[in-house]
């Protein structure tokens, strides 16, 4: 019942805020573009046969020498910018969403268990969390990436790049979930319904996931959106640093790194169009996250 009212209240608030509506439209448009990239994009930027060097460095259609074939121009290899960006956003979103899901599962699982069992287990998890919090996420992700480079045999490095990157990002973001889940679980542990379930002798896993989890979803949902934005930014940053994805399977961050080479020459679109796209994506996710926080936390309104 409560959830139902909140949902309605959220819907009502949603229609009242133009910024949130624009953010939602932008986010959904990018999501659709990314999911259906293989059908929307005119060329496959990974397939060398589908583009030609002859089309290299064409400006967007509204500039002089721009053609309608490439609405946002081409890069130095003759790749259509729209296609590169859609495929790039696809990769960024795949990595961002999977990292977020892994971080949520791991963090919520550990946080719930820490809050439920308390004692030594709780202390252990929280000390690990404290130590990790002392290292900022980007440092953790870089470190995990470096370790993977040292451990994995060279021939597997290229194939596992996406997996390594996703895990590195996920492992640097789980702490937030664990702390929030733990704190919320502590609050729920004193509620009568949990104590009743414990008295009935229900299995701890059942109490944790069937009874407690639905009641702490609100704050977790907010962290999920905020962390999705962080995950996408982290991936972009790592790829920009040249640690993330290689140039032949570019994400948005890689596209920006490649575009940097054109900072001093006149081909502004190669750098600024992917940059603008990344900012639009992250800003709209953050606006939605702020909105969700307001919906779930009426005190702040």
């Amino acid at each position: 019942m409560l959830a139902f009212i909140k949902r309605h209240e959220g819907l009502w608030l949603f229609t009242r805020s133009p910024a949130v509506m624009i953010a939602a439209i932008v986010a959904i448009a990018i999501l659709i573009g990314a999911v259906f990239a293989p059908w929307i994009a005119s060329v496959n930027p990974y397939d060398l046969a589908s583009f030609s060097l002859m089309d290299g460095l064409l400006p967007p259609v509204w500039e002089e020498f721009g053609t309608e074939k490439f609405l946002l121009g081409t890069d130095d290899q003759g790749r259509d910018m729209i296609s590169s960006i859609l495929y790039g956003a696809r990769l960024s979103l795949i990595i961002g969403v999977s990292a977020m899901i892994i971080a949520t599962t791991l963090g919520v699982g550990l946080g719930l268990a820490a809050g439920y069992f308390g004692g030594r287990f709780d202390a252990l998890i929280m000390r690990i969390a404290d130590i990790q919090l002392a290292l900022p996420a980007i440092l953790t992700a870089l470190l995990i990436d470096g370790i993977a480079r040292g451990i994995l045999p060279p021939e597997m490095q290229q194939d596992l790049r996406v997996v390594v990157l996703t895990l590195a990002i996920a492992l640097s973001l789980w702490v937030n979930f664990a702390r929030t889940a733990r704190a919320s679980t502590f609050v729920q542990m004193n509620k009568e319904y949990v104590q009743a379930a414990v008295m009935q002798g229900q299995h701890p896993l059942r109490i944790m996931f069937v009874h407690i989890l639905p009641n702490i979803l609100g704050p977790l949902l907010v962290i999920m959106t905020v962390d999705l934005a962080s995950a996408i930014l982290l991936e972009a940053t790592l790829s920009f640093l040249g640690i993330g994805l290689p140039a032949d399977s570019p994400s948005l961050g890689t596209l920006i790194r490649i575009g940097m080479q054109f900072l001093l020459s006149g081909e502004w679109w190669i750098l600024w169009i992917p940059t603008l796209f990344l900012i639009a994506l992250v800003v709209s996710i953050n606006v939605l996250g702020d909105f969700l926080r307001d919906v779930f936390n009426p005190r702040l309104r």
Binding site: A236, T237, F240, L263, L271, V282, V283, N286
Partner: peptide, 22 residues
């Protein structure tokens, strides 16, 4: 500030280089 939080550090750097440097 909301936009500022959403713009990655490296993009802010590139923008500053572009305007004040280039």
């Amino acid at each position: 500030t909301l936009v500022g939080v959403s713009i990655p550090t490296f993009v802010i750097g590139i923008m500053l280089i572009f305007f004040f440097g280039v």
